[in-house]
């Protein structure tokens, strides 16, 4: 497995966090592009993260985004936005924890 330092791991999680932010905002604003932005967030978390050390976190984030998209497609907003909120919170707190490593 390739080695990845804390900076690279942080960089990757920041990317995912940023796309989640865009998706969440578009959901609140009822943007017609919300589904596209949720798809971008899903894509940003796809594939193993650098070094593989953050897989447990990323696996949870992927599952939350996937389920969120399903609820959103059924026009069921509360479980959809709740999952995105938790995905973003787990990611941001993961970044904060990394900063202390």
């Amino acid at each position: 497995m390739e080695y990845a330092g804390v900076q690279l791991r942080t960089g990757h999680l920041l990317r995912v966090h940023g796309y989640l932010n865009m998706a969440i905002l578009s959901m609140w604003m009822r943007s017609p592009r919300a589904d596209v932005l949720m798809g971008m967030a899903e894509a940003s978390a796809r594939g193993r993260g650098p070094g593989g050390s953050d897989e447990e976190l990323l696996e949870r984030v992927r599952a939350l985004i996937l389920e969120s998209r399903e609820y959103f497609a059924e026009d069921d907003f509360p479980p959809a936005i709740g999952r995105m909120r938790v995905a973003q919170d787990l990611t941001s707190l993961g970044i904060i924890r990394l900063a202390g490593e």
Binding site: A63, L64, P78, R83
Partner: peptide, 13 residues
């Protein structure tokens, strides 16, 4: 809308 606690706490939640 399945805003009950099940939808909010099942699966990945």
């Amino acid at each position: 809308q399945r805003h009950g606690i099940e939808a909010l706490t099942s699966g990945a939640m």
